[in-house]
């Protein structure tokens, strides 16, 4: 069976400077893959190329057998790619529950006409969306905040809202961009447990991360980027022992 995600010779530059060059990557179904690298390694660019926030200059992104690198992001979401951004990309002015309900967009279809006429099918779908959203909030431990304005939540919880929102679209591939950054130790542990849990349920996860310790405990395999290129790939233990990785990035952190 083909891998869920395959990236081939992917390239993207900004003002003539390569951010990602000739990156190859294969993520089999059910795997938790981490992509690590020092600042400026091209991690976020790669993330955005897969999620659909950026278009590549060359190369391809194949998801579940479809070439998706020219698809707009909403079409990728519909196909089952859920995204959690690093920044607080929540919908201000809406409640936590409403934020999560937006995530169901990819798996529902009623449009302007159904909404305006309140057709029975539309009302049924609204109830389903509400049910799914509440489940996702429960799963991320945010039920108590459901009716609060999302703006009032601290950063850690806002990231939880993003995760619940992504889950509400019933993804098959979950993209996480530095989900642990800015979190306190207890929040990190909770997040790690939750991601572990999602993987057990069969979700494929691509985790872009700076924090090596966080990744080592979680990931099945690790891909290391440096200067826009893959310099190593393997299990967390293999990667930690790789000399090029140590030279490029880990250095003292690992030997210590």
């Amino acid at each position: 069976m083909h891998p869920l995600l395959r990236v081939n010779g992917l390239r993207r530059s900004f003002d003539g400077v390569f951010a990602v060059r000739e990156v190859d990557l294969e993520v089999p179904r059910g795997e938790l893959r981490a992509v690590i690298g020092p600042n400026g390694a091209g991690k976020s660019t790669l993330f955005n190329l897969i999620g659909g926030q950026l278009r590549p200059d060359g190369g391809e992104v194949v998801y579940d057998g479809d070439r998706i690198d020219r698809w707009p992001s909403h079409r990728r979401a519909r196909a089952g790619i859920g995204v959690v951004f690093q920044g607080a990309r929540v919908f201000r002015g809406m409640t936590v529950l409403e934020n999560v309900m937006v995530g169901a967009h990819g798996v529902t279809r009623s449009g302007f006409l159904g909404a305006v006429t309140r057709a029975p099918r539309h009302r049924r779908e609204e109830r389903e969306i509400l049910g799914t959203a509440r489940e996702c909030l429960a799963r991320t431990g945010l039920s108590a905040w459901a009716d609060r304005a999302v703006d009032a939540l601290p950063l850690g919880q806002q990231r939880g809202v993003q995760l619940a929102r992504a889950l509400c679209g019933r993804p098959r591939l979950l993209l996480l961009d530095e989900p642990a950054s800015g979190l306190r130790a207890a929040e990190r542990a909770e997040l790690a447990a939750l991601v572990e849990n999602l993987r057990t349920d069969g979700l494929t996860v691509l985790l872009v991360e700076h924090d090596v310790a966080f990744v080592s405990r979680l990931a099945d395999r690790v891909t290391v980027l440096d200067l826009g290129q893959v310099i190593a790939e393997g299990t967390p233990t293999q990667v930690r022992a790789d000399e090029r990785v140590i030279a490029a990035y880990l250095g003292a952190e690992v030997s210590a």
């Binding site: 707009p72 992001s73 002015g93 169901a104 967009h105 798996v107 992504a166």
Partner: peptide, 10 residues
């Protein structure tokens, strides 16, 4: 509020 996040949410 966020076209990027809205697009990514489908």
């Amino acid at each position: 509020t966020s076209e990027v996040a809205a697009g990514a949410s489908g």
